[in-house]
Design a protein around this nucleic acid. Structure first.
Length: 224
DNA sequence: ACCCAGGGCGTTG
DNA sequence: CAACGCCATGGG
């Protein structure tokens, strides 16, 4: 119960410092899914470019993507880095999406969460983070998304040992926070923002939003 | 000229 | 299961 309060306190600090991050407002939840694949191991900026290209080509649409071949998608998403592989990933997801849910996000969102996660992980190209991101940000399911920042920040903070497993971190957050989709949504967004903004540019941690670390040198910074 | 970004897969040992 | 190579752009 002490831990429960601690995670919420940290979130409150982040919220106070950064405000709501309003992640993935998107032009629609379907766009979120494609975005989740395109942003794998690449900056959101590069992923966004690919999304804009798809949109311009009228391809950011379930049926259009379903009826497209990877070789037609790949050139549009070049900026997303591993574009050939990502075109395949989109292709395999679309097959799954129509086979299982007829291309309906409503149906997919009505699926049992545990089962959906299992099914998503079976799709080639979707790992834990992407599957969870789809479930949280597209289906509005209360599942906590873990990324490299989450592991790094909270292991430096002392919550975990150095290389915690995905499941370990996810279980910790979900066991010590209220099961609230909006909270999980913004918490992950806050962590991400913390990860690649503040502590990279501030030499001393005077502005560190984690209260207990404020004023310590960057040697102890939770980011570095 | 470096460095690394909102990962995941296939192949080893 | 850990370690490592691979995929192969763009901004700082």
């Amino acid at each position: 119960m002490k831990k429960k309060k601690e995670l919420l306190d940290i979130y409150d600090s982040l919220l106070k410092e950064f405000g709501h991050r309003n992640w993935w407002p998107a032009d629609g939840p379907f766009e979120v899914i494609i975005g989740a694949i395109l942003t794998q191991n690449v900056s959101w900026k590069n992923a966004k470019k690919a999304i804009d290209n798809l949109k311009e080509a009228k391809k950011l649409d379930p049926l259009a993507l379903y009826n497209s071949e990877p070789k037609d998608i790949a050139p549009l998403i070049k900026s997303s880095r591993f574009y050939n592989m990502k075109a395949e990933k989109i292709n395999s997801f679309m097959d799954f999406y129509f086979r299982e849910y007829g291309g309906s996000l409503e149906k997919m969102s009505a699926e049992d969460p545990a089962l959906l996660r299992k099914k998503l992980l079976a799709v080639k190209g979707l790992g834990e983070e992407t599957a969870d991101a789809i479930m949280l940000y597209a289906c509005n399911m209360p599942i906590f998304v873990v990324d490299a920042y989450t592991k790094r920040i909270f292991s430096r903070y002392g919550t975990f040992d150095e290389e915690p497993s995905y499941r370990e971190v996810q279980e910790y957050f979900m066991a010590n926070l209220p099961r609230d989709t909006a909270l999980f949504n913004d918490y992950h967004a806050q962590i991400d923002h913390l990860g690649h903004s503040v502590c990279k540019t501030v030499p001393l941690c005077d502005s560190c939003p984690i209260a207990s670390l404020k004023g310590q040198s960057c040697q102890h910074c939770i980011i570095k």
